[in-house]
């Protein structure tokens, strides 16, 4: 239903060491996978004894690709061509900005989704966000929901809370027939994660 990234590589509830530990786990796994090509995406749970592997995915995450690709400054095509040619991959440049991504899903999703709702984005906020479509029905008079995830809105700003605000503004008109997790990326939720990790580390 949503995901966020910070202006620095680590997330607010982790230390730089914990972040680097997760990166080294991904690197060790990529090295062990002989002849592997494409994206290797490590999903972790942070514990008091460091990051633990939830799973590895063989492609970009969805929604997480919508957080990372918009702030990737290195042209993606350069990465693909280097991979094809067997050249050293370019060092990735990432803009130091936070992102928040929220998916709007049909009311009742996933058990009993209501399709056919018109998807609207507040026009005043639309210029400040990126809109990515998922499973939607494009008709002559607009874009409507199907039974699956409909549309993702991504805000990019200097902080998670600023990025969250522009996303929530853009989605403020989209609530009828659509469901959005308004809490994702809100300061009190992020703080709750920081507090929870502090508590686990103290145990």
């Amino acid at each position: 239903m949503g995901s966020y990234s910070d202006a620095s590589p680590a997330l607010p509830f982790m230390t730089d060491n914990e972040y680097n530990e997760a990166v080294s786990i991904v690197e060790a796994t990529a090295k062990a996978l002989e002849g592997y090509k494409g994206v290797l995406y490590g999903q972790f749970m942070l514990t008091a004894s460091g990051p633990k592997i939830v799973e590895f995915n063989a492609r970009f995450g969805d929604p997480e690709a919508m957080n990372t690709l918009p702030v990737l400054e290195t042209p993606l095509i350069d990465v693909l061509v280097a991979a094809r040619e067997g050249n050293r991959l370019p060092d990735l440049e990432v803009a130091p900005q936070a992102t928040v991504c929220k998916y709007a899903v049909p009311e009742g999703y996933p058990d009993d989704p209501a399709s056919g709702t018109a998807i609207e984005i507040d026009p005043e906020s639309a210029g400040d966000v990126l809109v990515f479509y998922a499973s939607v029905d494009g008709r002559d008079d607009g874009i409507y929901t199907t039974a699956s995830r409909a549309v993702a809105v991504v805000g990019i700003a200097d902080s998670i809370s600023e990025a969250e605000e522009v996303v929530d503004d853009a989605l403020s008109v989209a609530d009828d027939g659509l469901r959005v997790r308004h809490d994702i990326g809100k300061p009190d939720l992020v703080q709750a994660r920081i507090d929870h990790m502090a508590e686990l580390r103290d145990d």
Binding site: G2, A48, P63, L189
Partner: peptide
């Protein structure tokens, strides 16, 4: 089961 926090708030829904 691990006691901790996942790297992001995802709804892992289709």
């Amino acid at each position: 089961r691990l006691r901790g926090r996942r790297g992001a708030e995802y709804g892992r829904h289709g």
